[in-house]
Amino acid sequence: MLTIDVSSVTDERGLHAALAQALRFPGFYGMNWAAFWDAITGLVQIPKHLRIVGWDHLNNHVPRGAAMLRQTLDRYQQQYQPRFLAEYT
């Protein structure tokens, strides 16, 4: 399991930076949702269990980013890893 703390994120760029660092994306990561999808489906191997800590903060301060992250991880689970678990705390 990998824990990603988003409790201090205040914008989408900060969210992408936190995700890129935690998931070890390459330096050329594009910092947008299409690039996030490309990274998790072809550039890096993400763990089978992600715990996103600070979810309420993220949802309140960066609602679009929170929604996009959840949608993208749900899509990843459906299309690639049925046993993948994303936990939002």
Rank of each mutant, 00 (worst) to 15 (best):
M1L: 08
M1P: 04
L2E: 10
T3R: 15
T3P: 00
T3I: 12
I4R: 06
D5Y: 07
V6C: 08
V6L: 13
V6I: 09
V6D: 09
S7F: 04
S8F: 04
S8G: 10
S8Y: 10
S8T: 06
V9I: 07
V9T: 12
T10L: 11
D11M: 04
E12F: 03
E12W: 02
G14V: 01
L15R: 06
L15F: 11
L15A: 10
H16E: 10
A17I: 00
A17S: 10
A18P: 07
L19Q: 03
L19Y: 02
L19W: 04
L19K: 05
A20V: 03
A22Y: 08
A22M: 06
A22D: 10
L23N: 02
L23M: 07
L23S: 02
R24T: 03
F25N: 02
F25T: 00
P26C: 03
P26K: 07
G27L: 05
G27Y: 00
G27V: 02
F28C: 08
G30W: 02
G30T: 00
M31Y: 08
N32L: 04
W33S: 10
W33R: 13
W33L: 06
W33F: 10
A34E: 14
A34R: 15
A35K: 01
W37N: 11
D38T: 03
A39R: 04
I40C: 14
I40W: 06
I40V: 14
T41L: 04
T41N: 11
L43A: 11
Q45L: 09
K48E: 14
H49F: 07
H49D: 10
R51T: 08
I52T: 03
G54V: 01
W55C: 06
W55H: 13
H57M: 06
L58V: 04
N60C: 13
H61D: 15
H61C: 12
H61M: 12
H61I: 00
P63H: 06
R64M: 14
R64Q: 15
R64C: 11
R64V: 07
G65I: 01
A66S: 14
A67Q: 13
A67D: 14
M68C: 15
R70E: 15
R70W: 10
T72I: 09
T72M: 13
L73K: 03
D74S: 11
D74R: 13
Y76F: 15
Y76M: 05
Q77V: 03
Q77K: 14
Q77H: 12
Q77E: 14
Q79I: 05
Q79V: 02
Y80P: 01
Y80V: 06
Q81Y: 08
P82F: 03
P82R: 04
P82S: 04
P82Y: 05
P82L: 00
P82V: 00
F84C: 03
L85D: 15
A86L: 08
E87C: 13
E87M: 09
